[in-house]
Amino acid sequence: MDRLPPPSDEFESLRRLLTLKRHEKPPPGFFSDFSDRVLSRIAVEEELRTRSWSTRLADWLQPGRLFAPANALAACGLIFVGAGLYLVLSGPKSHPNTSVVVTQPGPAETRAAGFSVPPPAPPLEQYIVIRLAPTVQPDAETNDIPKDLFTLPRLRSVQGTPAFSPKMVLDHRP
């Protein structure tokens, strides 16, 4: 297996070429703090090693660490329960028209589930009549608006169709 070394001049050119590698050096100052870096790493490793297994076990068994998953699950559960209760309790009350809608015919499964379907939007004319008539009440004592300004005959006379006036919509939309 072992072979005799070749004559020294056989690889002389190669050997001289390889000696050029000796000129490759690290950046200047690299070795000035090299041993300090080594000793720092030794200090860190020693500190890690000197921590006994019981210390590491105690760290691992910290209550916060052990119960972190349980706490996260409990928090998620509380959020879900709270959101569910909010939907169940506050949902119907926030839609006063629900009673009207539920009585309308609709998909059986929707009614069985207790969900309400918002009523279809009324025609614009109906909207104006229904919403403006009871809410817009010109006060003769505080305003100078003529008393007959909002009467239906006058509206009809403007557009020719019952209760439609773009100007009224713009001025008094709730």
């Binding site: 297996m1 072992d2 072979r3 070749p6 690889f11 070429l17």
Partner: peptide, 24 residues
């Protein structure tokens, strides 16, 4: 053993010489 070192050195030099022949 030193013989193994010599053997490896010889083989390595042969390879290097072949790869760098144009430089030498």
């Amino acid at each position: 053993n030193p013989g193994t070192v010599r053997s490896r050195l010889f083989y390595a030099r042969q390879q290097l010489q072949a790869w760098l022949s144009d430089l030498m």
